[in-house]
């Protein structure tokens, strides 16, 4: 019985993240539009976009290889698997032990690796520019993320995300190291999700594109999958930050009622996260590409500082 319930919770989570992620993107877009005094499209527009793209033919460049056609599915699957391992409304998911936090970060790294390769497949200059910049950003964002994981793991004595979230939900107090980790995590999350000021998801201006340049050659169902994967990644990061730094209401076993409270709390947190992102994005200008390493380098140093503090004393 317990197994079945765990399986249902896990399955519900997989379906929920998949179904809700376009809505989150839609909400962020709508809020950004409202904040710039535009009316904006409906919050359900991303679903319509996805359906439209799915029904369209794929137009492949003449020299696109098999890799180019496989990558969207791989990227989508990898990010979906990663997103279904992050505690959203309930900790202690059934399969959470199959990949700890380090593995989760590395899974996102795999997705990025393949997407960057796909960007280079057709052999256009925009694909190359996107891939090379993406890998430059990743070369600092990923180590920063690992240092954040170190911080969390040293506080919790575990790299198991469900375990960490459960522990943080029961309260670990205010800590300097966790404060530093939160700042660093937000910086990394913004870079990883190609948001302003690092990248602009809405741009098609040649010189400012990073993520969009990489996926420029994609169309139809392939593009739909990549857009869906991008939405999933945003949801993943907001859920990650929420379950670590705002773990209130997170269900830890114990029946349907607790799970429903957890679900409601998670939806509220997602909304707040999306709203904060929209406000932040409208209030800041995009950076030059070569300012990005400085910001991410700062995130890396914050992560290292937090880890060092914990190596010095468990009390920080």
């Amino acid at each position: 019985m317990e197994v079945i319930q765990a399986l249902i919770v896990q399955g519900a989570q997989m379906a929920l993240v998949l179904l809700l992620s376009p809505l989150l993107t839609g909400i962020v877009r709508k809020l950004k539009a409202r904040l710039t005094r535009r009316r904006g499209t409906s919050v359900f527009q991303p679903y319509r976009d996805l359906l439209r793209l799915l029904r369209k033919d794929v137009v492949l460049a003449e020299n696109a290889s098999w890799l180019f056609r496989v990558v969207p599915y791989l990227v989508f699957a990898t990010i979906w698997v990663a997103a279904s391992l992050v505690p959203t409304f309930a900790a202690g998911l059934m399969f959470s032990w199959s990949a700890d936090l380090i593995a989760l970060i590395a899974l996102l790294g795999s997705a990025r690796f393949f997407l960057a390769l796909a960007g280079m497949d057709v052999g256009t200059s925009f694909g190359g520019i996107g891939s090379s910049r993406e890998m430059m950003i990743a070369s600092l964002a990923e180590p920063a993320m690992i240092m954040i994981v170190f911080t969390l793991a040293l506080v919790a004595g575990s790299t198991q995300l469900s375990y960490i979230a459960g522990l943080f939900a029961s309260g670990v107090g205010l800590r300097v190291s966790l404060g530093l980790a939160l700042i660093a995590l937000v910086m990394v999350a913004i870079a990883e999700n190609s948001r302003i000021p690092v990248d602009n998801p809405a741009t098609h201006l040649e010189l400012t594109m990073v993520h969009e340049a990489m996926v420029l050659e994609y169309s139809g169902r392939h593009l739909a999958l990549i857009e869906l994967a991008a939405s999933l990644k945003l949801l993943l990061y907001i859920s990650l930050i929420a379950c670590l730094f705002a773990p209130w209401g997170l269900a830890r076993g114990g029946g349907l009622a607790v799970d429903l409270i957890g679900l409601a709390a998670w939806l509220v947190k997602l909304g707040i996260g999306g709203a904060l992102l929209a406000i932040f994005e409208t209030s800041i200008a995009k950076m030059r590409v070569f300012r990005v390493p400085e910001v991410l380098g700062a995130a890396l140093m914050l992560g290292l500082l937090a880890t060092l503090l914990l190596f010095v004393s468990k009390g920080f």
């Binding site: 137009v59 460049a61 003449e62 599915y73 698997v81 256009t124 200059s125 925009f126 169902r221």
Partner: peptide, 26 residues
């Protein structure tokens, strides 16, 4: 599994057509 599920569902329910054309490159 999730990659092949995705591929199967999309090819079955949505579109499976492919057209070849010159690269877009903005």
């Amino acid at each position: 599994v999730s990659a092949s599920l995705g591929a199967y569902a999309i090819h079955r329910l949505a579109s499976r057509a492919v057209r070849r054309g010159p690269a877009w490159d903005c």
